[in-house]
Design a protein around this nucleic acid. Structure first.
Lengths: 247, 247
DNA sequence: ACTCATCGATACGGTATCGTAGCACCGATA
DNA sequence: TATCGGTGCTACGATACCGTATCGATGAGT
């Protein structure tokens, strides 16, 4: 029992407004959960797996350690939930020809890679995926969802006959998305003006695309990485993920 | 002072061949430095940035903490030196045609990505590069060196007229290397048979390559998704991964 | 207005790493 | 052979995080 707590109680009895550090409203239940997951992703983006600790997350979330431990039995469980909650769908371009659709999608992604938190978060995910098979498959799932729009656009174009029926769509997706990742996380170079459209044009040409006609495309919302809705709750994790200390 | 040390001393005085394990020969100077840098890269590959500690490196190197601190003032300095020493050049293919040269280079790289330590190390590098500008530029330099062979092959082909003079070689390098990285670290899928040649063929076609030899597209699609094959944990690496001082 | 599950704050022992110090030992050099 | 400097070993206080227990406070539903 601390002296300050006693003082607070007396303050209430004295009917005077407590002017010392006011307690901000404490949201509970699902709200607290979201707050913690968001904080977890922020910590992960800022400091990577190395700085990902229950204490750091609790501090950033304005929560207490026991609150975290009540919901997640280990840092590993929290990490899994946070990763799982990090996905936010990229809106499918509304339309038009294949080329402008692809350019729009990749441009959206290019902007994502320029945001503050996303690259740090993705780098942490890639690193984490290399250390733990569970995180690897989780990351694979997230990526699978992110690939969906590209795959869909290509499949539609193939059905329309703009792309040969034998075209390897999976490979095409790799060719489209790979360079952006590579350039950002490995080569560490910026994207020149028109880089995205350069990639798209090359890939379409390699696919034998019979182009209707190129058209300038507007850009849409950058998505974001903040945890959205809860998806599949990903299996419970009984053990901690491999960390520096013991295990 | 330990009893064992005393026992060692007595063993010498007894003039008998020291048959107990005792001490292995202690290499000094540059040897000790290399040993530590190699250990540092191993630790980094195994446990990532989160598990990269002076104690862990010292233990794996069979060195003592003070020895590490005598040479590097902090874990950060050691990390920088280790990254810097990690580069090992990929041999330039004995020149055949452009296509086979590219396939050979990418195949070599594909094999690298299948080795035990390399992916973990690269993931750690990517993560580290996002946290520290110094490591980022270091990583950028390393990558720059790795891109060189691809760039050289493409430039020669361009000079020979096999590729249009306006071809964007930097973009071509991204298109060639990106998918391998993306597939390994983001999509977490295995490489199908003929994946590399598929990438090369598509990129060459996109560049408008006038091929001297036929380049039939091999297996088409299949979409087979081979999640990272489990490799035996006992499997030692007889082929050395990028190690110190070989730069 | 009342109750209760939930939350924040604090404290605690335990462990891992940090960065430094002192000492014994041995490889290299003269 | 004798020195000299690099090296391994142990120990130390300090710090950070772990995972848990306890208690007071409070939001939300009745």
């Amino acid at each position: 029992m601390s002296a300050r707590q006693v003082a607070d109680a007396e303050g209430e009895l004295a009917a005077g407004p407590i002017k010392e550090k006011t307690r901000r409203p404490v949201l509970r239940g699902a709200h607290a959960r979201d707050r913690v997951l968001t904080a977890a992703l922020e910590v992960l983006a800022d400091r990577g797996l190395a700085g990902f600790s229950m204490e750091a997350v609790a501090h950033r979330a304005g929560a207490s350690k026991p609150t975290l431990y009540r919901r997640w039995r280990s840092p590993g469980e929290l990490l899994v939930d946070a990763m799982d909650a990090s996905f936010r769908p990229i809106p499918l371009p509304a339309t038009g020809d294949l080329r402008s659709g692809l350019v729009e999608l990749l441009s959206t992604f290019e902007r994502l890679l320029d945001q503050q938190h996303f690259p740090g978060l993705l780098a942490a995910f890639m690193d984490a995926a290399e250390r733990d098979p569970r995180l690897k498959s989780l990351h694979a799932d997230l990526t699978e969802h992110r690939r969906e729009p590209l795959r869909l656009l290509l499949a539609r174009a193939r059905d329309r006959g703009e792309i040969p029926a034998e075209a390897d769509i999976e490979l095409a997706v790799d060719l489209l998305g790979g360079p952006l990742f590579y350039r950002r996380f490995v080569a560490h170079r910026g994207y020149r003006e028109g880089y995205v459209s350069g990639v798209v044009d090359h890939v379409l040409r390699s696919l034998g695309h019979t182009s209707p006609s190129p058209s300038p495309s507007p850009t849409i919302d950058g998505g974001g990485w903040t945890p959205g809705k809860e998806r599949s709750p990903a299996g419970r994790l009984d053990q901690r993920w491999p960390t520096a200390r013991e295990g």
